[in-house]
Design a protein around this nucleic acid. Sequence first.
DNA 1: TAGTGGTCTAGACCACTCA
DNA 2: GAGTGGTCTAGACCACTAT
Lengths: 230, 230
Amino acid sequence: MTPISYQKIRTHIFGRIQSGEWELGGLIPGEIALAKEYGCARTTVNRALQALADEGLLIRKRKGGTRVCQTPLRHAKFQIQIIRKQVVASGRAYGHHILHRSVTVPGPDIQERLNLKAKHKALHLQTLHTANTEPFAFEDRWVNLEAIPDILNAPLTDQSANEWLVKTVPFSRGTVEFCAENASEEIANHLRTSINTALFVLKRATWIDAKSITSVRLFYAPGYTLSSEL
Amino acid sequence: MTPISYQKIRTHIFGRIQSGEWELGGLIPGEIALAKEYGCARTTVNRALQALADEGLLIRKRKGGTRVCQTPLRHAKFQIQIIRKQVVASGRAYGHHILHRSVTVPGPDIQERLNLKAKHKALHLQTLHTANTEPFAFEDRWVNLEAIPDILNAPLTDQSANEWLVKTVPFSRGTVEFCAENASEEIANHLRTSINTALFVLKRATWIDAKSITSVRLFYAPGYTLSSEL
DNA sequence: TAGTGGTCTAGACCACTCA
DNA sequence: GAGTGGTCTAGACCACTAT
């Protein structure tokens, strides 16, 4: 007899939820019962139910049993890509230029974000990313030199700082924020658009352990859309 | 002897990756070797490695072995919440008003999005969501009445359409898009801001099987930020 | 306190893919 | 063809929590 896969069970149970066989918030049969029903080991059912719980469709509690989630908090997943790949994936030619590069003492907001001591210098980079020579995104980045001194020696001509950091610095934790901002005159010029145009902005801070590495603001050219499946 | 948990193994291996013990793109030991090293069953190691692969830190191939991912495509996860919960979670009082409600033939763009036949009517709703009586978001929604005729009988005063749909319609697939748009005069008025202000916009389309249910555009009041951990 | 999910094991077979 | 990960099983014990 060919064993039934946990993926098939997952899909089947997903269908039973969709069809309304069980009420929203209602209790569904226990693992042992489902295992008997599907003719497989409890472990296999467990795996299927855990997958559905991860997706936010089920809520599981010991002793309390498994319930259909009342308000399906679906999550949208976005891949945070290297900008070059974003551009290339859209079928255009990628390029980038460094517009500004200095080692200076940042303002208080960045100082706090980078967790820098007062008067400590950091690397400030402004880069324009292009797609088919059109502006694609303007990047305003600060790098903590205490954490990543090597970046001063890196030739950031072939690879952008974005890419260099991703490839060089081991895995790290971080935060991302998305918001909308009106273009300042400076940024509007860089992106070759008009002042006050609504821009999609990504702000990211990256850490390794408790050490701050870099803080970036990325202003996408008008028309940029971030999309995802639910 | 107390068994080592797959979570501990996951964390430990995560550390080994971070520390650079294995090169980016490099091969790591096989499951049997790691199982011997950690003194546990292969199944347990397998689970830990699968978790890390799901997170995008490892790439696994049969026969090819397990490698550290070269470009850690971390994904950001956002929970798509009911607006009321967003507001309440921020500690403010939620409210909503229906600004417009009609059953009409939509324009061609919406017609296509909803997969409607020509001249078919749909429900058009415009809702203002408020936080502490301040505008929080303006919602512009079309509902496919062929898929969800019941919504005409729903009292959308206590619950917003947003919430009614989430709670009533069984699980569904959908797409989300985020972008930035300049406020039109109408929307600026609703959100009590000035024209051309940059607004963070969420567009969502929801489907059940191949049937379109609803299409929404949500314009958040200025200052709204969507944030997430990486 | 009893029942449910969470996890580990040891062993087995399979599927993919690299050489 | 051979080696690696993918998955299923049957059984066991544990941890949480609803009653």
